[in-house]
Simulated assay, not measured.
Amino acid sequence: MSADPWSRPTLSDLRTVLEAIGKSEVEHGRAAERLELSVPAEVMTNRGNTISAMTREISRFGIGLLHRGFVSPGEVTVRMASETREFEYRVRIEWCQPCSNGMFISGGRFLGPAEESEDD
């Protein structure tokens, strides 16, 4: 079976990656509690590419993502949807690294809602 290399990771993919990573015993000194959150998301780059993703975790200040393919650090728009609402945020991707099964995990800091973006 040849899967689309840019298709959205499944919940099973997310579980496999999270099990492989495990919980860190290192204290990261984070300012906000992180909550596990596994919902479909889309990452829209400044070049106009849309990458399907799954969220891994979220805090008041940032978000962790799982996706196929490398996402360059920099500003992107992340769109997520619940059953009743759609959320769109500007996010600065701060890191992206490969993990199992040809997937990548990344993390970014919220810059604000997408509609508040500044004019260039």
Score class of each variant (00 low, 15 high):
residue 96 C to W: 02
residue 3 A to E: 07
residue 120 D to A: 14
residue 41 A to S: 03
residue 28 H to Y: 14
residue 79 R to H: 09
residue 51 I to Q: 01
residue 100 S to V: 13
residue 44 M to A: 14
residue 57 E to N: 15
residue 49 N to M: 07
residue 69 G to D: 00
residue 8 R to A: 09
residue 105 I to R: 11
residue 21 I to C: 08
residue 110 F to P: 03
residue 47 R to C: 03
residue 12 S to F: 09
residue 115 E to G: 06
residue 49 N to H: 12
residue 40 P to S: 12
residue 9 P to C: 09
residue 84 T to Y: 11
residue 60 R to V: 09
residue 75 E to Q: 15
residue 108 G to L: 05
residue 86 E to K: 10
residue 30 R to A: 08
residue 35 L to D: 07
residue 41 A to M: 04
residue 30 R to Q: 13
residue 14 L to Y: 04
residue 89 Y to M: 13
residue 1 M to D: 08
residue 28 H to S: 10
residue 22 G to V: 06
residue 32 A to Y: 15
residue 18 L to C: 13
residue 39 V to H: 01
residue 60 R to G: 10
residue 56 R to A: 01
residue 105 I to G: 01
residue 110 F to G: 02
residue 100 S to L: 14
residue 117 S to I: 10
residue 93 I to Y: 00
residue 14 L to F: 05
residue 102 G to T: 11
residue 82 S to R: 02
residue 33 E to D: 12
residue 29 G to C: 13
residue 61 F to L: 08
residue 99 C to V: 15
residue 12 S to N: 09
residue 11 L to N: 06
residue 18 L to E: 15
residue 90 R to C: 04
residue 22 G to P: 06
residue 108 G to P: 06
residue 72 S to E: 15
residue 40 P to C: 11
residue 107 G to W: 07
residue 31 A to E: 11
residue 116 E to H: 09
residue 15 R to G: 06
residue 120 D to F: 11
residue 116 E to R: 10
residue 75 E to A: 07
residue 84 T to G: 04
residue 39 V to G: 00
residue 95 W to H: 10
residue 109 R to P: 03
residue 91 V to R: 04
residue 71 V to M: 04
residue 44 M to G: 10
residue 47 R to I: 00
residue 54 M to C: 06
residue 29 G to P: 12
residue 111 L to F: 09
residue 107 G to P: 05
residue 94 E to W: 00
residue 94 E to R: 10
residue 42 E to I: 09
residue 60 R to C: 02
residue 78 V to C: 14
residue 60 R to F: 05
residue 113 P to E: 11
residue 57 E to P: 02
residue 22 G to W: 07
residue 97 Q to M: 05
residue 16 T to L: 04
residue 85 R to Q: 13
residue 92 R to A: 12
residue 77 T to F: 07
residue 59 S to N: 13
residue 17 V to I: 15
residue 73 P to V: 08
residue 8 R to G: 00
residue 37 L to I: 03
residue 14 L to E: 05
residue 102 G to L: 03
residue 43 V to E: 05
residue 31 A to C: 08
residue 107 G to Q: 07
residue 46 N to R: 13
residue 46 N to E: 13
residue 11 L to Y: 04
residue 72 S to G: 02
residue 108 G to D: 06
residue 97 Q to D: 06
residue 20 A to E: 09
residue 46 N to V: 04
residue 116 E to N: 13
residue 115 E to K: 11
residue 102 G to C: 02
residue 89 Y to K: 06
residue 118 E to R: 11
residue 22 G to E: 09
residue 74 G to R: 14
residue 28 H to C: 06
residue 95 W to P: 00
residue 78 V to F: 14
residue 38 S to H: 12
residue 25 E to D: 14
residue 27 E to D: 15
residue 107 G to H: 08
residue 83 E to F: 04
residue 50 T to M: 07
residue 101 N to Q: 11
residue 74 G to A: 08
residue 80 M to E: 14
residue 68 R to V: 00
residue 112 G to C: 09
residue 98 P to R: 14
residue 97 Q to G: 00
residue 94 E to Y: 00
residue 3 A to I: 05
residue 120 D to V: 10
residue 108 G to K: 02
residue 26 V to L: 11
